[in-house]
């Protein structure tokens, strides 16, 4: 919830030790696109401290199920999974009512995208993308299928391990957040340039889902969980 104290939120610069490297060896696009000059420091004004909270009303968002086009339609091919988690700020307070965008490859490792040249089949029952809004406790959930791995054709060797993309349009311009989350125990994780573009094992673990429950019944699925911490720390008010 927003209140007067929101103005006192501190957005310290990202700690590089906890983040993906800007330039990753062998990830060639970073060599031609990451600026060479140092980033410039600036004061944070109202312009940076505000952000597109209005998007919740702009987009038609509801419960998210990527595995079918409509509630009574056939299900997409692949292993059904239920992904859940919670979005908080650095103080552990829920980040509620923000838009989360999710996209991924289908079970064959094929994206619905004009630039995907991988010769794998599309799945007519898989939407591959969608939006949701975090609830009052910052929680999100989505039914989907486990994505397939796919080759990065220009590289000649690099196969991307299964992963799901997340984009969060937070409450301020300062906490725009985009990431990719991987699955535990995948052989391809060991050589992935992006997953290994983070400096420590501890940080890498934050890019990997935790397996949760396995559910059996009319709907049987495997659960995966990943919480997200967005930047933003409420400053302690100074004593008079």
């Amino acid at each position: 919830m927003m209140d007067d104290s929101t103005m006192k939120i501190d957005y310290a610069p990202y700690d590089d030790a906890t983040q993906t490297l800007r330039q990753i060896d062998k990830y060639t696009p970073s060599a031609t696109r990451v600026p060479s000059a140092p980033l410039i420091e600036r004061p944070l004004t109202l312009s940076e401290r505000t952000g597109p909270t209005e998007l919740v009303s702009k987009w038609n968002v509801g419960k998210l199920d990527l595995c079918r086009l409509a509630p009574d339609s056939p299900r997409a091919l692949g292993q059904l999974i239920h992904v859940t988690g919670r979005v908080t700020d650095e103080d552990g307070a829920p980040v509620s009512s923000v838009v989360m965008e999710i996209w991924q490859a289908n079970a064959s490792g094929k994206y619905i995208h004009e630039l995907d040249d991988h010769r794998a089949p599309l799945d007519p029952n898989f939407t591959g993308q969608g939006r949701l809004v975090t609830d009052e406790d910052g929680r999100y959930e989505v039914f989907t299928v486990k994505p397939g791995a796919y080759p990065v054709l220009y590289s000649g060797w690099w196969w991307r391990p299964p992963h799901i993309h997340f984009s969060i349009l937070g409450t301020s311009w300062m906490n725009r957040f985009i990431t990719q989350i991987f699955f535990p125990g995948e052989v391809l994780n060991e050589k992935d340039l992006l997953l290994n573009g983070v400096p420590s094992r501890d940080v890498r673990d934050r890019l990997i889902f935790k397996p949760t429950d396995t559910v059996m019944g009319d709907l049987s699925y495997i659960g995966y969980q990943r919480d997200f911490v967005l930047r933003g720390h409420r400053q302690t008010p100074e004593l008079p």
Binding site: Y14, Q19, E90, A105, H113, Q180, L194, V229, L230, H233
Partner: peptide, 18 residues
Amino acid sequence: KQIVSPGCTTGPFFPVDF
């Protein structure tokens, strides 16, 4: 204080519809 989650690139397949 929680550690801020690591971000990553959108990659090439950010949905056109978005």
